[in-house]
Amino acid sequence: MTPPDATRVRQRQVGVTGPDGPDAGRAVDEITLSAGDIDVTVWTYGATLVEVVVPDRAGDRSNVVCRLPDLAAYEDRALNAYVGSTVGRYCRGVRDGTFLLDGTRYTLDRNAGRHHLHGGTDGFDRRVWQARVEEGPDQVAAVLTLVSPDGDQGYPGELTAEVAYRLHAAGRLTFEYRASTTAPTLVGLTNHAFWNLAGAGTVDSHLLALNAERIVPFDEELFPLAGPLFPLAGTRLDFRVPRRIGADRLDNFFVLDEPRWAAELHDERSGRRMRVVTDQPGLGVYSGDGLFAPRAGLALEAGAWPDAPNLSDVPSVRLDPGQTYRHRTVHEFSVG
Rank of each mutant, 00 (worst) to 15 (best):
M1D: 08
T2S: 13
T2Y: 02
T2H: 09
P3M: 02
D5K: 12
T7Q: 09
T7S: 10
T7D: 05
R8P: 00
V14N: 07
V14D: 05
T17V: 04
G18P: 02
D20W: 13
G21Q: 03
D23M: 09
R26P: 00
D29R: 15
S34I: 06
A35P: 01
A35E: 01
G36T: 02
I38S: 09
I38C: 10
V40E: 01
V40A: 01
T41A: 14
V42Q: 11
W43E: 01
T44C: 02
T44A: 02
G46Q: 06
G46W: 04
G46K: 07
V50P: 01
E51D: 15
E51P: 05
V52I: 15
V54D: 04
P55S: 12
R57C: 07
A58N: 13
D60E: 14
D60Y: 02
R61S: 12
R61T: 07
S62D: 11
N63V: 01
N63F: 03
V64E: 03
L68N: 07
L68E: 04
P69N: 07
P69T: 03
P69Q: 07
D70G: 05
D70V: 02
A73T: 07
Y74H: 11
Y74W: 12
E75R: 12
E75Q: 15
D76M: 08
A78Y: 04
L79G: 00
L79E: 11
A81E: 10
A81I: 05
S85N: 13
T86N: 14
T86H: 10
V87N: 06
G88R: 08
R89H: 11
C91H: 10
C91T: 11
R92H: 13
G93Y: 04
R95C: 02
R95T: 06
D96T: 11
T98M: 10
T98P: 00
T98H: 05
T98K: 14
D102S: 11
G103Y: 07
Y106T: 00
Y106M: 03
Y106Q: 02
T107D: 08
L108A: 10
N111Q: 06
N111D: 08
A112G: 00
G113Y: 15
H115D: 15
H115V: 07
H116I: 07
H118R: 10
G119M: 08
G119F: 06
G120L: 07
G120F: 06
T121D: 12
T121K: 14
G123F: 11
D125V: 00
